[in-house]
């Protein structure tokens, strides 16, 4: 490919402009969150007078975000644990074991990828209501597990299929049971994939609003993202406070992105290059 010096700099200008356009809304919000209401009304763009977390703290204290955060942590942790357990078990079986109907059952799992939640939400809501799981943490955990399991199985299967069959066979000849192989060999070997899939699933669950709105009906069971949607009405005349609340809700995700960027992009592209 041609890589003449001047051409590279010519494209670098729009690239930089676009990077600015990507990051600026976030920086703007951060700046606004440090302003007083008066400062914001007078000038939208001026730099905040001081670096302060006062708005963030007030938004946190006055709008129940703490409780919503606990709800989000509980359902995200529960769903991710269940997803990793079920996904790694099935992924191991689909990639390393031979049994009747293996190919067919794997296709069922992949086919479920094409069923978005929107398509099944009405019957899902009804069944959850009939089983008493509506408006419960466990109901939401189940909903997330059902939603993200096909994707998890797909990634774990393609990861485990790269492990040579001899590894499993050698362990078996040494007297290990198949379930023992799963526990002692496949789980430790799968850690990098489990980390990547786990972080992705955590983001999916944490960021979700549709499923959570549907399942969690009462105010005290709200997850954080649903709580954020309510902030707008609450702080419609105090944009800096609103910005503070939005920022609090975004912080955990920003932190995760800074630490685990590689795992996240590896995870989302794992499906693409396999075709």
């Amino acid at each position: 490919m041609p890589e003449r010096g001047i051409g590279r700099w010519v494209v670098a200008v729009p690239m930089f402009g676009l990077a600015l356009a990507t990051i600026y809304p976030m920086l703007f919000t951060l700046n606004v969150a440090m302003k007083s209401r008066r400062e914001y009304v007078l000038d939208r763009f001026s730099l905040a007078d001081q670096v302060t977390a006062a708005n963030i703290a007030e938004a946190w204290n006055s709008s129940g975000l703490g409780r919503y955060t606990v709800n989000s942590v509980v359902v995200t942790a529960g769903a991710v644990a269940l997803l990793l357990l079920l996904g790694s078990m099935a992924g191991f079986a689909f990639s390393q074991l031979t049994f009747r109907g293996r190919r067919w059952l794997f296709l069922v799992c992949l086919g479920a990828l094409m069923i978005p939640f929107q398509v099944i939400m009405v019957p899902f809501f009804r069944v959850l209501g009939q089983t008493g799981l509506l408006d419960t943490h466990f109901g939401l955990i189940l909903a997330y597990t059902g939603q993200f399991l096909p994707f998890t199985i797909f990634l774990m299967t393609s990861f485990y299929s790269r492990i040579p069959a001899e590894v499993v066979e050698a362990a078996r000849v040494d007297g290990s049971t198949t379930l023992g192989v799963y526990r002692r060999i496949m789980l430790p070997l799968g850690l990098p994939a489990l980390l990547s899939v786990g972080i992705l699933n955590a983001l999916f669950c944490w960021n979700d609003v549709l499923i959570s709105l549907l399942v969690m009906q009462s105010e005290h069971n709200r997850t954080l993202m649903v709580g954020v949607t309510a902030l707008r009405g609450q702080y419609s005349d105090n944009i800096p406070l609103f910005a503070g609340g939005v920022l609090v809700a975004a912080l955990p995700v920003i932190a995760i992105y800074l630490f685990f960027q590689r795992q996240i992009t590896d995870g989302v592209t794992a499906g693409a290059t396999k075709g």
Binding site: L86, G87, M89, A90, F92, A93, F94, L97, T98, F99, R102, L105, V108, C109, A112, I115, V119, I120, P123, F124, V127, L142, A143, T145, G146, Q147, L149, P150, I153, T177, T178, L179, Y182
Partner: peptide, 21 residues
């Protein structure tokens, strides 16, 4: 073992995705 490993996931997918569809 294969049955034990695959059944929970399949129950979830069939029960929470395919039956609702």
């Amino acid at each position: 073992a294969a049955l034990v490993l695959v059944t929970p996931a399949l129950l979830v997918i069939v029960g929470l995705r395919i039956v609702p569809l």
